[in-house]
């Protein structure tokens, strides 16, 4: 369905980390995830995506600061010939809370959960707008590699092309560099 675009603010790396707690998505609080995504991304995601998210809630993580939702990583599991794949739909943090490690924490937590609880998942993938170098850099810190480019992937964005980022899980356990910062990823 989609692609991703995290924008890291390297200049702000000195800012301290945001104290966070994590929670799961349920049908009771999905409205907050929708509200969060609407505030962060220029795309209005279809209801179908949220149904997919609810179908496998283990791989979606919500980040809270002072008990207020400030960021989330939303994923779904996709079937492929090599076994199930983790597809990252969205990864985003509200603007005032960016640059303090929340995005990295969410991605790491998600990858770790998959590694420990869903060992059958072989690979994590996502799409990113080709112009979003920030996001590409961000994901590469966690061991994601740039695969093929898909022209015309986005209908309403410019440029419309996306690159596929992929990361083999189980190859090495560590998720790559730590301490990164992420702003938004849109799928």
């Amino acid at each position: 369905m989609a692609a991703a675009a995290p924008a890291a603010t390297a200049s702000n790396a000195a800012r301290p980390r945001l104290p966070l707690s994590f929670g799961a998505v349920t049908e009771k609080n999905i409205e907050q995830l929708k509200l969060l995504n609407r505030a962060i991304f220029p795309i209005n995601y279809p209801e179908r995506m949220y149904k997919d998210i609810l179908a496998c809630t283990d791989v979606t993580q919500l980040a809270y600061h002072n008990d207020v939702l400030v960021g989330a990583i939303a994923c779904r599991l996709e079937k492929s010939t090599q076994g199930p794949k983790l597809y990252i739909l969205t990864l985003g943090v509200l603007a005032p809370y960016r640059g303090m490690g929340a995005g990295a924490a969410l991605l790491q937590r998600c990858l770790q959960l998959v590694a420990t609880q869903l060992p059958e998942v072989q690979e994590a993938v996502l799409h990113v707008q080709t112009s979003n170098e920030e996001a590409i850099r961000f994901y590469s810190r966690f061991g994601f590699e740039v695969a093929e480019t898909i022209p015309g992937y986005y209908k309403r964005l410019d440029p419309p092309d996306a690159v596929l980022l992929r990361k083999r899980l189980h190859a090495d356990g560590s998720g790559g560099a730590d301490g990164g910062t992420a702003n938004g990823t849109n799928a």
């Binding site: 924008a7 991304f41 220029p42 702003n183």
Partner: peptide, 20 residues
């Protein structure tokens, strides 16, 4: 609610994207 929220989203996204 949707209109307001998505308007916000656009503004913030623009800011976020411009950082790179």
């Amino acid at each position: 609610g949707e209109e307001a929220a998505s308007a916000n989203g656009l503004a913030q996204q623009a800011a976020a994207l411009s950082l790179s």
